[in-house]
Design a protein around this nucleic acid. Structure first.
Lengths: 350, 350
DNA sequence: CTCCATATAGAAAACGTTTTCTATAAATAG
DNA sequence: CTATTTATAGAAAACGTTTTCTATATGGAG
């Protein structure tokens, strides 16, 4: 099987202690000549340290664990890529799992992570309760929440200002001359969505537009695919008497559903109705019309969360650290300025 | 810190051997009464086995490692999700890394994987050479390639019939009445693409259509984003004297670039030119026009590769196992039948 | 020249398990 | 009633490292 440190010791004519010191480049002084012999022997034998033994004895973990709701969501896959890079760059290895936002699965995953002795936990979850809190605390390792921060959570996190994003969406639509505005979404089952809605409605109300009528919330959307939800939102819009001039949708995929359904219903986007997304999925600018949306910085979130976690490893008692990212507006074609009727110049690129 | 088996033994008034037997549910008989005591003590202490110790002593790994070119690619993220599920279901844990198809990084990752003592390796790579072969062999664990199978590789794999996919694309276009057909792609730097091209051209030639003129290969596309490549393909098409009636594109994202660029150039898809994709990204049916394409079964690939790997763990000498999946045609709107001029009925769903 | 620090390296302990070995009591076979 | 399984459980070894402890030269300081 794999060569062990003992075989390297035998081959290099030294003791196992010496070999360990060389190969784990400890601070302990070892003669240059000997070091060379050891390195050569290890090389020749194709020695690779057994990480289980190493972790066991040194009581140091080489793993950072991450839990995201889904890997298929382009936002999270971007975050995860950034996390992966940063984790490797910090000398750790990544153990990544997806939870589907299922509390049951989340709990099982935390047990697994507990038994692999990860050095830190990165997690994005919409659930927060006694049980989860205890489970995470029992892990005895620093945990960093990122992206959505569940209500009541009070620990380290790298978040995003969903409230500001909601405000930004509404402000932009109003600044483009819209007054008759709808807000399409599913149930408000997570804090992030409530915040977005609050920000959005706040601005509407400030502008003297009734936000109560604006909301088109698809009740049973919890189990629906985002796209279907968008279709349902557009259905509802088409059913109403008066069409708004603009609709903000809770995420990009749903926005695509809205657009497709409206187009089929004979309503042109953006000429009859403007549609505004949220997320900035990488396909938004490839569409026709390309999607005006709001971006949450995904790489930055992943990187920052990882850095924070790494810095927390080894000093557990530190007070709550956090970082909040801000939304950035991505102006493209799916929202048009009211009053202008000329066709906006098309572009095939961002 | 975390409770150990010894503390559980003390608390339950038994020996550490007994505790181990209970908690690792070994086949060894242990009195029901005692078992209960142990379980309760473990529960009370919140005991979680230390996987490093467990792996070290039992010489069994709990990890399956996977390397994919990219996590941001929706095809791979679907594969990875399936792998994750299947790995967990088999009682293992997943260690997943992305290589960007970079041989250097691949090699580093293999070293890492070697030292974590994974039980099996799942890998999708376009590179195959002496060095990689030796590295993988040195791991001493079963390796299963999936998706693309590099030329010269002879081991376990779960593949896809790219040649058939190429044939299918060409046959479909011809069956829809097209004779003037282009094939848009980047450099043929990987076996899978060569196979697709070969199948495609084969059918063209059989039908008496010169395949040599059909190929629009963007030279510098190696470093380009797929979408840019599509734009470049369309540019080239627009530059030519005669527009083909149909263009097959090497992947969906590039197809989106082609469509957008053609539309901007005043060429309507599918009325003036039909566009055929390849991959079936999840956004294909959300677009306008929705994308006609060919699907490689991603979940099935991930699941099958994992099952194969798991079955291979522990009997290393078995001969080369493999499984090949076949393409399935996804008919949507971006390809139209030549001769028909009525607008196909739009649908907002698959 | 003696004493003490220093560089170097081997011996042994330890990490938390699983597994093998050994021991005892109960149960069955003869 | 003795001999031999069988059920049960503790003791001890082992997995491959890192770390602590101990030992031996070597080199200055006095």
């Amino acid at each position: 099987m794999n060569a062990t440190i003992v075989e390297v010791a035998r081959k290099s004519g030294t003791s196992l202690s010496t070999v360990s010191r060389v190969l784990s480049n400890s601070a302990y002084p070892v003669n240059e000549k000997t070091r060379k012999r050891v390195v050569e022997a290890a090389e020749a034998l194709g020695y690779r340290p057994n990480s289980a033994a190493r972790m066991l004895r040194s009581r140091r973990s080489m793993y950072i664990a991450a839990i995201v709701p889904s890997l298929n969501n382009p936002f999270y896959s971007t975050v995860i890529s950034a996390i992966e890079q940063e984790v490797l760059a910090s000398g750790y290895m990544l153990q990544m799992y997806s939870s589907n936002n299922d509390p049951e699965l989340e709990s099982r995953l935390l047990d697994l992570i507990g038994s692999v002795q990860a050095a830190a936990l990165l997690i994005s979850s919409m659930n927060w309760n006694e049980k989860l809190e205890r489970k995470i605390r029992d892990l005895g390792i620093p945990a960093v929440f990122f992206d959505q921060i569940p209500e009541g959570y009070s620990g380290h996190y790298v978040g995003f200002d969903f409230h500001e994003a909601g405000r930004m969406a509404a402000e932009f639509l109003i600044s483009e001359g819209h007054r008759d505005i709808a807000f399409g979404c599913g149930p408000f089952d997570r804090e992030s969505r409530r915040q977005y809605r609050n920000g959005f409605c706040e601005v509407l109300d400030e502008a003297g537009i009734s936000s109560a009528d604006a909301i088109v919330s698809i009740a049973g959307a919890g189990s629906m695919h985002e796209y279907e939800m968008g279709v349902a939102i557009a259905d509802e819009l088409l059913r109403r008497k008066g069409m708004p001039t603009a609709v903000a949708v809770i995420n990009d995929i749903a926005a695509l559903g809205v657009i497709k359904r409206l187009e089929i219903g004979g309503v042109n986007v953006p000429f009859d109705v403007s549609v505004m997304g949220f997320d900035d999925i990488p396909y938004g600018f490839m569409m026709t019309p390309s999607l005006t949306t709001i971006r949450q910085p995904a790489e930055e979130t992943g990187r920052m969360a990882t850095r924070l976690a790494v810095s927390l490893i080894g000093d557990p008692g530190s007070e709550c650290m956090n970082e909040i990212f801000h939304p950035v507006l991505i102006r493209r074609e799916s929202v048009r300025r009211i009053g202008r009727i000329e066709r906006k110049e098309n572009s095939y690129n961002d």
